[in-house]
């Protein structure tokens, strides 16, 4: 069965890139443009992996991850954080919030898939 991925990013460009990459790798992709929408998408769904940006309006990535981890349904879902550069600061904050791993932007298809492979069951 195809891996189901929820991609949360406020940038339409990145959302389209993620969708394009992941779809061509055979994943099913659902997108959301911020944390609030991400949580909406998660309610009633159980994706295999969640990918989220950090800097987003309304609810940022840290808040989003914390909310997912404190919920019931998807608290164990692997969450990958998109960071622009390998900023350790961000990685660790994301980790503290409950992120599983990260993807450093700019990403290519291989990088993305390998990151997902490393967390998806």
């Amino acid at each position: 069965m195809a891996l189901q991925v929820l991609a949360v990013d406020d940038s339409r460009t990145i959302r389209e890139m993620l969708t394009s990459c992941l779809t061509s790798a055979g994943c099913e992709v659902v997108v959301a443009q911020d944390g609030v929408e991400g949580l909406e998408r998660l309610s009633g769904a159980q994706p295999d992996v969640v990918i989220t940006d950090i800097n987003m309006p309304r609810m940022n990535g840290f808040e989003f991850i914390s909310a997912v981890r404190s919920g019931e349904q998807n608290r164990h879902v692997p969450i990958l954080v998109l960071t622009t550069e390998s900023a350790d600061d961000l990685k660790h904050r994301a980790r503290s919030a409950g992120a599983t791993g990260w993807i450093v932007k700019p990403f290519d298809e291989l990088k993305l898939i390998s990151a997902i492979r490393r967390v998806a069951t």
Binding site: P57, M59, R69, G71
Partner: peptide, 23 residues
């Protein structure tokens, strides 16, 4: 679930978190 020692950010349920901007 209560063993949240590793999570350093306060956990706020989404519903209780008001949208930070009025956008």
């Amino acid at each position: 679930p209560d063993d949240s020692a590793a999570v350093s950010l306060s956990l706020v349920p989404p519903a209780a978190k008001p949208a930070s901007s009025v956008a």
